Simulated assay, not measured.
Amino acid sequence: MQKHRIYSMSFASVYPHYVAKAEKKGRKKAEVDDIICWLTGYDHQGLNAQIKNNTDFETFFAEAPQLNPARALIKGVVCGVRVEDVEEPLMREIRYLDKLIDELAKGKAMEKILRQ
């Protein structure tokens, strides 16, 4: 089975789109970073290193220090796909991230986004 093309895409090439989506709705880059760190376990320095190194999505998630166990609480639809129904593990992680950024852009409180 052929891998989805997003797996080999650089996380750094998509990251500015996450930030732009959030900022367009009045949210901050720091909130995007906090969400990514919460989901993956990267600290801000580690996240910046992954961006600087042009790490692809597959490696970005494979090297994540500690995927947050609460991510299983992320439910809903993003890009017409129900995230909890995505069977392929890496694609599910990417969809979790997409869903969290969508929630941020829709004005949801950080406490709710981070499932606290």
Results as ranks from 00 to 15, higher is better:
3 K>D: 15
70 A>Y: 10
77 V>G: 08
4 H>T: 14
13 S>V: 06
10 S>I: 08
91 M>D: 05
75 K>V: 15
34 D>Q: 07
41 G>Y: 08
84 E>H: 09
52 K>Y: 04
43 D>G: 04
33 D>R: 05
18 Y>R: 10
22 A>H: 04
10 S>A: 15
101 I>C: 05
32 V>K: 08
83 V>D: 03
67 L>C: 02
47 L>V: 04
3 K>H: 09
116 Q>G: 12
48 N>M: 03
89 P>E: 01
77 V>I: 08
63 E>V: 04
106 K>W: 14
46 G>W: 00
9 M>N: 14
73 L>P: 06
37 C>P: 08
60 F>R: 08
25 K>A: 15
1 M>E: 15
25 K>P: 04
38 W>G: 08
36 I>H: 08
89 P>R: 03
15 Y>P: 14
23 E>T: 06
45 Q>M: 03
102 D>K: 09
111 E>L: 07
76 G>V: 05
110 M>T: 02
114 L>T: 10
35 I>R: 10
73 L>W: 00
66 Q>F: 06
14 V>H: 07
75 K>S: 14
96 Y>D: 09
36 I>W: 06
27 R>D: 12
19 V>N: 07
48 N>E: 12
4 H>S: 12
106 K>I: 05
35 I>K: 04
44 H>A: 11
2 Q>G: 11
21 K>T: 10
108 K>I: 15
78 V>F: 03
16 P>W: 00
80 G>D: 13
113 I>Q: 02
28 K>E: 15
111 E>A: 13
47 L>P: 04
42 Y>I: 12
37 C>A: 04
102 D>S: 03
101 I>H: 01
73 L>N: 14
103 E>S: 01
92 R>F: 02
59 T>N: 09
16 P>D: 02
109 A>K: 13
32 V>Q: 12
75 K>H: 15
8 S>I: 12
22 A>S: 06
40 T>M: 02
98 D>P: 02
2 Q>C: 12
21 K>F: 10
44 H>C: 04
26 G>Q: 07
71 R>Y: 15
62 A>G: 00
8 S>Q: 14
2 Q>Y: 05
115 R>Y: 07
6 I>E: 14
106 K>E: 12
